[in-house]
């Protein structure tokens, strides 16, 4: 029997495109996205990915991101 491998994913957030709308914070089922605390050149508090290893690359954050600032990868 094959052992079930847990999917592991990660996302990349383009800090410059992010407008800090926090829509992704709300929809991420694993609460893996939070405020980076830093301001980008447009003056927005951008989001950052907190790699808590829970991300399974479901892609929801990218689907809802109005800025197309998130890209999603699966290992």
């Amino acid at each position: 029997m094959k052992a079930k491998v847990k999917m592991k994913g990660y996302i990349e957030i383009n800090q410059e495109s992010c407008k800090g709308c926090q829509i992704c914070f709300y929809f991420c089922p694993k609460s893996s996205i939070s405020d980076s605390g830093s301001i980008n050149s447009s003056g927005y508090f951008s989001a950052c990915f907190s790699d808590n290893s829970e991300c399974n690359a479901c892609g929801i954050c990218a689907i809802v991101c109005p800025e197309a600032a998130i890209e999603v990868y699966r290992e």
């Binding site: 892609g59 197309a68 999603v72 990868y73």
Partner: peptide
């Protein structure tokens, strides 16, 4: 390990 892209910025988006 291969890395699969799940979501990429759309090609036609400038």
């Amino acid at each position: 390990m291969t890395i699969k892209t799940v979501y990429k910025r759309p090609k036609l988006l400038k």
